[in-house]
Amino acid sequence: MLIIADLTSHYGRVRALSGITLSVNEGETVALIGANGAGKSTLLRAISGVQEVSGGKMSFQGTDIRTKAPQERVGLGIVQVPEGRQVFASLSVEDNLRLGAYRRRGPSVAADIVRMMELFPVLHARRHQAAGHLSGGQQQMLALARALMAHPRLLLLDEPSMGLSPALVWAVYQAIADLKRQGTTILLVEQNAHAALSLADRGYVIETGAVVLTGTGAELLKDDRVRAAYLGL
């Protein structure tokens, strides 16, 4: 579904991605594991088109997407829940959801908003409040729901558990596991390697902008290097 080959990207003169090659198949959940600054978020930003790439190939369902604008990629079904949630803080919860479906038209949008509020009841209770007034966990739910409003074919999740209490991490991962069961294709970036690899079909380990290790989630959980570097075992 998503095929990335030799992708490079720079922040000014600093190289952030130095030749990433990976793929995500339809229906799969793939985890990207790596330390802070390894290039995980940069890769997701590049896939969404909000980070410039300097070389390599990137295709989605057979279409070359490297030159496509961010909004065109959303139209194709590549939707990201960015790091730090990035809700529209001054807009209401309901408006955040409505804007999630910005590329879609028609009456089904209103029905989807209702569905999201059933899925995340806390959003229903606070639908008229400014999103900035929600707690961190509620904002994460909102960010996820906003992305689902776009009907993603490929959902990019950047550190969905960051800054959340263990109970909330569990709740967020429940929600992701539900999406996986429904067949959504997911590319998940995490520093919380254990949670991510337990959920994922496959995983990639990224160091200094390149893939250093790949395997199924279970294989990586057992790998000595992964255990030492990312699981603290």
Binding site: S48, G49, V50, A69, P70, Q71, V74, G75, V79, Q80, P82, Q86, V87, F88, A89, S90, L91, D95, R98, L99, G100, Y102, R103, R146, A150
Partner: peptide
């Protein structure tokens, strides 16, 4: 209106606006 809200959203968080598909 959706266009008006998209304008507010862009001023509030340009990155997130791009990620929901606002040009």
């Amino acid at each position: 209106t959706l266009h008006g809200k998209a304008m507010l959203a862009t001023s509030c968080n340009p990155l997130a606006a791009q990620l929901v598909g606002i040009r």
